[in-house]
Computed example of a mutant assay.
Amino acid sequence: MKLIVGLGNPGRKYELTRHNVGFIVADKVAVLTSASATKTKFEGELCESSIGGEKAAILQPHTFMNASGQSVRKAMDFYKLSLEDLLVVCDDLNLPSGKLRLRPSGSAGGQNGLKDIIRHLGSESFPRLRVGIGRPPEGWAVNDYVLGKFSKQEQETFEAATTRAAHATISFVNHGVGQTMSEFNADPAAPK
């Protein structure tokens, strides 16, 4: 059993914002794997799926980004999962727009959702898939940028990046961190 957690903020106000990349990826994984109907559980929205014969729960915490850990902790305890069975998908300001980076563990790197999950789990040793949203333009406040919607120019990049991240998530369930890192951390536009 795997737990896939897409981070974001609930409500219409935050739909399709840069900070909700994790929700967008979780929705795409649910569609691609024909997941069950969504239900309210663990202070979030939850659906279940079978991915390559492995059972997977897909969770979108509705506790707001900075309090994501309490939702994740409840799901981890309910399913009795180990840290390596968890994959957290989130946005990352420090990665170029559209770039993916999967890691088996690491610090929060300034991402408040990850920071709260680390606090609730008492460990940094769980896989996370970061989707780059790039740095804010000159003169923009970070909060305004991450809570802003994608510009027309960005929409194509993020449509492709979130679809690729959904496929990376499915690969994580089927093949684990190592193989998925080698396939998806590389720039898809780079020559082979």
Rank of each mutant, 00 (worst) to 15 (best):
I118Y: 05
G113M: 02
G106W: 04
R119S: 13
S107H: 13
R128T: 13
R130P: 02
R119V: 09
G109V: 09
E124K: 10
G113P: 06
R135D: 06
G109R: 03
S105F: 07
G113Q: 03
G106P: 14
R128Y: 08
R119H: 14
H120K: 13
P104G: 02
K115H: 15
S123K: 11
G109F: 04
G106C: 03
R130L: 04
S125I: 05
I133A: 02
G113D: 07
L129D: 02
G134W: 02
K115S: 15
I133M: 02
N112K: 15
N112M: 08
G106S: 04
G110N: 09
G113A: 12
S107L: 08
G122T: 12
P136L: 01
S123I: 12
R135S: 11
I117R: 03
K115G: 07
G113R: 02
G106A: 03
I133S: 02
S105A: 15
G106I: 06
G132Y: 00
I118G: 03
S107N: 13
P136C: 00
Q111M: 05
G134Q: 04
R135N: 11
I133R: 01
P127V: 03
D116Y: 06
G106Q: 04
S125W: 03
E124N: 13
A108Y: 07
I118H: 03
S123C: 11
K115Q: 15
G110T: 11
G122E: 10
S123F: 11
G106L: 00
R119F: 13
D116L: 03
H120P: 04
G113S: 10
R135V: 06
V131I: 15
E124R: 10
